[in-house]
């Protein structure tokens, strides 16, 4: 099953017949069963599915955090499958940004230092104009010298978003970015994730199980049982919820 939207050449991330099998024998678990998908440049894609559907695994494989059992994964022009540690590090450094559910900021660094960390690790200077834009977008200008412990959860997640945005990666992977936030902070974060796509042409792939969060995306891909079972373009919370409900009833699965 292939879900293709837009021109192939413009895909920021691509999965081609990806299988992921954990364990062997009795304990074998097939997390992904031949998933093929493309995520085009400049769009905000959500991956949804019930628990155990393989949505997080798919994202980890796409981002090069996990290896695939079969099939290939590519980010932009780079084939991720088969890259060594050095190659994967370079890929993460230059082409991929991450936003995690648990924020994952370094407690010893200030907000500003956390934001600039990927660039300093890569030994690059930030583009000042873009840096200002990002800071203003996330609205953290007056919090830059604070340490993570001095920031609220929403602020910490905005720092994490800024960190992902500032290096202008090919694609940002967000793993339940609002999972640890209250609904207002969550809405703020989702709002500027969408803005960064609309206004700055950023590519974002977000894993979520929250229909409201998914409604911020341009497109939603639904996974069940390790396979892509459905997708929605220009979703709303209601259409997402409807689709999810259908997925929950195995008889209706099948598209």
């Amino acid at each position: 099953m292939t879900a293709t939207v837009g021109q192939q050449a413009q895909a920021a991330a691509r999965a081609n017949d990806v299988w992921k099998v954990y364990g062997s024998g009795e304990a074998q678990v097939i997390a992904l069963r031949g998933v093929s998908a493309e995520f085009e440049r400049g769009r905000f894609t959500a991956i949804m599915g019930p628990s155990g559907s393989g949505k997080s695994t798919l994202m980890h494989c796409l981002a090069g955090l996990d290896s695939v059992t079969r099939g290939t994964v590519a980010i932009g022009e780079t084939t991720v499958t088969g890259l060594g540690d050095g190659g994967l590090t370079k890929l993460r450094r230059d082409k991929v940004g991450f936003i995690f559910q648990q924020f994952n900021l370094l407690p010893t660094l200030t907000a500003k230092e956390n934001i600039l960390l990927p660039l300093s690790i890569a030994g690059r200077k930030p583009d000042p104009a873009w840096y200002d834009t990002v800071i203003d977008t996330v609205g953290l200008r007056d919090r830059l010298d604070h340490r993570p412990a001095q920031l609220s959860g929403g602020q910490q997640q905005r720092v994490a978003c800024a960190r992902a945005l500032v290096s202008r990666p090919e694609v940002i992977f967000a793993d339940e970015p609002t999972g640890n936030l209250d609904s207002r902070s969550g809405a703020e974060v989702l709002g500027f994730l969408r803005n960064s796509v609309r206004e700055h042409g950023q590519t974002i792939v977000m894993v979520t199980h929250d229909p409201t969060a998914a409604a911020y995306a341009d497109r939603v891909v639904f996974l069940a049982d390790g396979q892509i079972v459905s997708e929605l373009i220009e979703p709303t919370a209601d259409t997402v919820l409807d689709t999810m409900k259908k997925l929950d009833t195995p008889a209706e699965v099948g598209s």
Binding site: L65, G86, R92, Q102, N104, I121
Partner: peptide
């Protein structure tokens, strides 16, 4: 562990 994982995720090389 988690912090180290994050640093590696955002591009810190093994040597670094």
């Amino acid at each position: 562990t988690r912090e180290l994982g994050l640093l590696r995720a955002i591009g810190l090389r093994r040597g670094q």
